[in-house]
Design a protein around this nucleic acid. Structure first.
Length: 435
RNA sequence: GGAGAGGUGGCCGAGUGGUUGAAGGCGCACGACUCGAAAUCGUGUGUAGGGUCAAACCUAUCGAGGGUUCGAAUCCCUCCCUCUCCGCCA
């Protein structure tokens, strides 16, 4: 959520920026509730103070009837006022949480995703002297035998797959390649220098997080999308994570981290689950949009001064990794309507998919400033002053493995129906050059 | 799944109805001593909300929520979590 102090001091701006992001909020009404809430709170605190004073007077002696009577009266009045406050506070909290994060200055203003800005295009759409196939054609049982969705549907329903053989080898090769890259300080330093950044080249620590999380931290992370995205295990009050981000950004929930621990840089590997409600009939072919997919996700927790630089580093890493695989892509600076409620800035990488003849999203990088950590209460204690401040968070796809595999299959296919393994992956696949 | 123990500040650990936001210790910060350091001594040291130019000050907070009471870390209820033993099991 946003800082209420900030909203008080920048009401018009918040109203305007919220509208730019497509969120209907009534800031004037929120501020009214805020005023009312504080008025009630002051009243209640005065009553409590009187109760505490009275209680101290009574200590060590038998209370008089008069004191008891005053106490009882205070009790009743408090109960009534607290009930009133509760009603106001519920409305206030709901409205406060409805306010989206403010977009950064250089986020393009737009009403729909059509107004996203292509920041750059790298590589040309792959050319073939034959008609390129889709992933499901290349991976069919009578072709390379890599993808079996029919039998998966029999067992688990639609949007599930058995991935097989060389495709599985390739998935783990990508994982190893990515972890090697993100653990390599020389590469990080090079990317930092190239982008004029001044943050340290601290390597990313690989993490395998839990794939499930409880309601309370999930809500606090501002990432729970119960209706459309997230699977619930009702019996145990657990949700299947839709991304490792969700179990990574909540990891330090309710903690104060020493400043010298920052930045925290993690690369998390997790199977992710998405209900994909509302996408029926969309992307049904192949492994582009699945209920279950494995993903490598980068997560950074840093100070307010360095959060934006971390964001830029994450985008640079994404570009580097995609380029290393030789995939044509374009970098998208997402407009205000498309960056998402908790995000202040968001970039996507869309890779070229020859089967569809189109660029499709494979990566996203989000910068949340302190919007997420205000609820999660992830703070840092400054080394010099001892002061406590909210941290900033970033998340970014390292590789969404399903879509990456699909992109490689389609871009690296040969006329004879095979797939050339990108060179950087070969050392992790026993030197294999094709699948 | 069965049986038991327990959740208190950055950490350890007292505390079973009334100056307990919480003893004591560790850690940390500052100061004294020292050429400097260690040791020692002194002072300070949670978080959040309100309030103030800043303070003072007020309120909340002892896993979470609810209840009893004039008053709850302390009593009652529900839930969550951790640990130990048994069972099962990758």
């Amino acid at each position: 959520m946003l800082d209420i102090q900030f909203i008080r001091e920048n009401a018009e701006l918040v109203q305007e920026k919220s509208a730019q992001k497509g969120y209907k909020v009534d800031i004037a009404q929120l501020l009214e509730l805020d005023t009312e809430r504080r008025t009630r709170l002051t009243q209640i605190e005065e009553l409590r103070a009187r109760r505490n004073t009275l209680s101290a007077e009574m200590k060590g002696q038998k209370p008089s009837d008069e004191q008891l009577a005053v106490g009882k009266q205070l009790k009743e009045e408090l109960a009534a006022r607290e009930e009133e406050l509760k009603v106001i506070e519920e409305k206030y909290t709901a409205q406060l949480h409805a306010v989206p994060n403010m977009p950064l200055e250089d986020v393009p203003v737009g009403a729909t995703e059509d107004e996203n800005v292509v920041a750059k295009t790298v590589g040309e759409p792959t050319q073939f002297d034959f008609t390129p196939l889709h992933d499901y054609q290349l991976g069919a049982e009578d072709a390379l035998d890599l993808i079996d969705k029919e039998r998966a549907a029999k067992i688990a329903g639609s949007r599930f797959a058995y991935l097989k053989g060389g495709l599985v080898r390739m998935q783990f090769a990508i994982v190893q390649f990515a972890m090697d890259t993100l653990g390599n300080e020389e590469i990080l330093q090079k990317l930092i220098n190239e982008n004029g950044l001044t943050i340290p080249a601290k390597p990313f620590v690989p993490i395998i997080p839990p794939a499930v999380l409880r309601t309370e931290p999930y809500v606090a992370s501002a990432r729970l999308n119960a209706e459309e995205v997230t699977y619930k295990i009702e019996q145990d009050d657990l949700w299947l994570n839709a991304s490792a981000e969700h179990t990574l950004c909540t990891m330090y929930w309710n903690e104060i981290l020493p400043e010298d621990m920052l930045p925290v840089r993690y690369i998390g590997y997790s199977t992710s689950f998405r209900r994909e409600a509302g996408t029926y009939g969309k992307d049904m072919e192949g492994i582009f949009r699945m209920h279950q997919f494995d993903k490598l996700e980068m997560e950074v927790i840093s100070t307010g001064e360095t959060g934006l630089q971390e964001h830029k580093l994450l985008v640079a890493i994404q570009e580097y990794l995609v380029a290393q695989l030789g995939l044509p892509y374009r970098l998208i600076n997402k407009c205000t309507a498309d960056i998402g409620k908790p995000n202040a800035s968001g970039f996507d990488i869309d890779c070229w998919f020859p089967g569809q003849g189109n660029y499709r999203e494979t990566h996203t990088a989000d910068y949340m400033t302190d919007y997420q950590t205000r609820d999660l209460k992830i703070r840092t204690r400054r080394s010099r002053t001892g002061e406590v401040e909210l941290t900033h968070t970033n998340d970014a796809t390292c590789f969404a493995l399903g879509r990456t595999l699909k992109a490689i299959l389609e871009n690296c296919q040969t006329k004879d129906g095979h797939v050339t393994v990108p060179e950087v992956l070969r050392p992790y696949m026993g030197g294999r050059e094709t699948i």
